[in-house]
Nucleic acid binder design. Structure first.
Lengths: 222, 222
DNA sequence: GAAGTAATGTCAATTATTTGACAGGTAATT
DNA sequence: AATTACCTGTCAAATAATTGACATTACTTC
């Protein structure tokens, strides 16, 4: 009786979703600058996208603006934050306490945005007990229980690719529904588990491609 | 006389370029597994994309395959590597010797792929001289000369957003033509400077969105 | 409070990307 | 040597994303 037609939810394209964090970032900056309102035109100039795209994107989620006025910066910032799920607390575990993993945990900014590390795991006994931002590194064997007992909803995988696929499978068995993956391999998980890849070397290769292309097009010598 | 029609170069879409590193990765894995040849059909099943897309993508760069045979794994791996510019040495500097910066320098895998850090800079005097993977941290003031004298072609920016835009401008003035940007802000550089953003928190927000969407669609309670 | 101006939300047109289909070659098999 | 099965490169169709245009509404000014 409480359940309505389930097909109400319009699927938003990943292209749009991929732009939301950028909008959020720009609105945050505007807010910090003390800007109260902004039109799609002004924002488009700052962000170097078309005004039409901004209006189109925002309209996927409802009418946030007002004709003749534009968008209220603070309100829009909050609303996009909600859309992105930044108003709910996310409890994370780190798998892999290497350089990158430590950097992520120490990355205080995530905290402001409601992403909280709750535990750190590694399979290197030399690290057990070591404190990283007040969290002791724990052995992998304890991961599963910890995830279950602490309402963890995101696992961050920062281990070499060799072990990553297996660890992801374990995590899925522990009930994890979201993985932020820094290992250089694609994970194999069921459909109901969300994976976001942060393949840093892919990103670097793209840069390398664009350097080469520019040099070729402009006859730059190596 | 040596200059031909400059319009020969077909512009490849960023959508295609974005997929190249993934092809490269899968081909490397196949090579390691000892697989000699592969058809677009088989590869498509592994990668979970359509075979048509693979053939279309590869064909942007030339005919690498053979009818009735498929693609030679090793050959294709090498060729895509060349397209991505992995056959040329890239000399990099790190700006910002914080946790993330150190993690990137220590990230040995980049080396195999011809991306070499040559110098590290920070504006924190407490770090000057500190060795990170045998490189001493140098003061920012020396950055420009170093870049010029050591044929640096990529600058990696891993500092808080407050200083990033200004540092990017400095780097451009020093002649840098490519920036790998980890700061949470968009840089403002001339058209001939390539920027690749690695906005980690954007990535995390996307994950957060997808968690929320899944939960909504499936009526999962928080 | 009326007139003018600004700026959204939305529809339609355009452009880009992805998918499907198949002709024509290549290799394997008999 | 002929036949069959395989698989690419490419073209055309289908789908998706972006842009432009404008009717409509809200704000601002006089």
């Amino acid at each position: 009786m409480e359940k309505k037609e389930t097909k109400e939810i319009k699927e938003i394209s990943q292209a749009v979703i991929g732009r939301l964090p950028r909008y959020f970032r720009y609105l945050g900056d505007l807010k910090d600058e003390g800007v109260e309102r902004i039109s799609s035109q002004e924002l488009s100039e700052r962000m170097k996208v078309t005004a039409s795209q901004i209006r189109q994107d925002l309209n996927n989620f409802g009418g946030f603006g007002q004709q003749g006025y534009g968008y209220n910066v603070e309100y829009l910032h909050v609303e996009i934050g909600k859309i992105l799920g930044l108003d709910t607390e996310h409890r994370m575990v780190l798998i892999g306490a290497g350089n990158l993993g430590q950097a992520l945990v120490n990355y205080t900014n995530f905290e402001k945005r409601s992403f909280l590390f709750k535990g750190i795991f590694d399979n290197n006994p030399a690290l057990y007990g070591k404190l990283i931002r007040n969290f002791p590194v724990m052995p992998m064997e304890e991961m599963c229980d910890f995830v279950r007992e602490n309402q963890i909803d995101i696992a961050v995988i920062a281990i070499p690719k060799e072990g990553a696929v297996k660890v992801a499978e374990q995590l899925v068995n522990c009930g994890i529904k979201a993985i932020w993956n820094f290992s250089h391999v694609d994970l194999n998980v069921p459909e109901d588990v969300q994976v976001e890849n942060a393949h840093l070397s892919d990103s670097l290769m793209k840069l390398s491609y664009n350097i080469g292309r520019y040099n070729k097009e402009n006859g730059v010598k190596q």
